[in-house]
């Protein structure tokens, strides 16, 4: 029996047929089989969050999940995220430097925004401490996520971003 199997994964809204080993993690499938290299390996151990994707609406470290477990699930990677408020906020508030942890961080933030639109500071910390950023001191990431949450919570009375820019 072949150690490879044929599966169809639903990634970024597209059905992606792929031959994978049972032992391949979702991260390996994304990067090596599908060329979706936005998800980054950092520890292969669930400690750093650089490989975070969204699976059925929840953030998931793709190094901690097998590719075969992805069948029948909706998977979103950074490549599937375009023009979102959090991406814009990361740019505006300088919330990254080397950019390596950024896709994972953004996926986690996006999931937080969707799941916990009224997140308190504690809730934000609880979610975002699962990713490591080694370049920033986290303040910029904090400003970025809070700006998006605040804006989406005050749609009637949008806060001008200008006032926070220098």
């Amino acid at each position: 029996m072949s150690i490879f199997q044929y599966v169809v994964l639903k990634i970024n809204g597209e059905d992606r047929p792929v031959m994978i080993r049972s032992a391949d993690t979702l991260l390996e499938v994304l990067r090596n089989e599908l060329g979706l290299t936005g998800s980054k390996p950092g520890c292969l151990n669930g400690d750093c969050g650089a490989c975070t994707v969204i699976v059925d609406g929840k953030p998931m470290k793709s190094c901690l999940m097998l590719g075969v477990e992805g069948t029948g699930k909706e998977i979103t990677t950074i490549e599937g995220l375009q023009g979102t408020a959090i991406q814009q906020a990361f740019v505006e508030y300088f919330a990254f430097q080397c950019g390596y942890c950024t896709p994972g961080y953004i996926m986690n933030c996006q999931s937080l925004i969707e799941n916990e639109p009224k997140a308190t500071d504690e809730k934000i910390s609880e979610w975002l401490k699962s990713n490591i950023c080694r370049c920033t001191g986290y303040e910029e990431i904090e400003t970025a996520i809070k700006s998006v949450l605040r804006e989406s919570n005050s749609k009637d009375r949008p806060i001008s971003r200008e006032s926070e820019m220098d």
Partner: peptide, 13 residues
């Protein structure tokens, strides 16, 4: 490894 060697995480800043 990063579980037993812990850099600063979000919220600890």
């Amino acid at each position: 490894q990063l579980r037993t060697y812990r850099p600063v995480h979000f919220g600890e800043h």
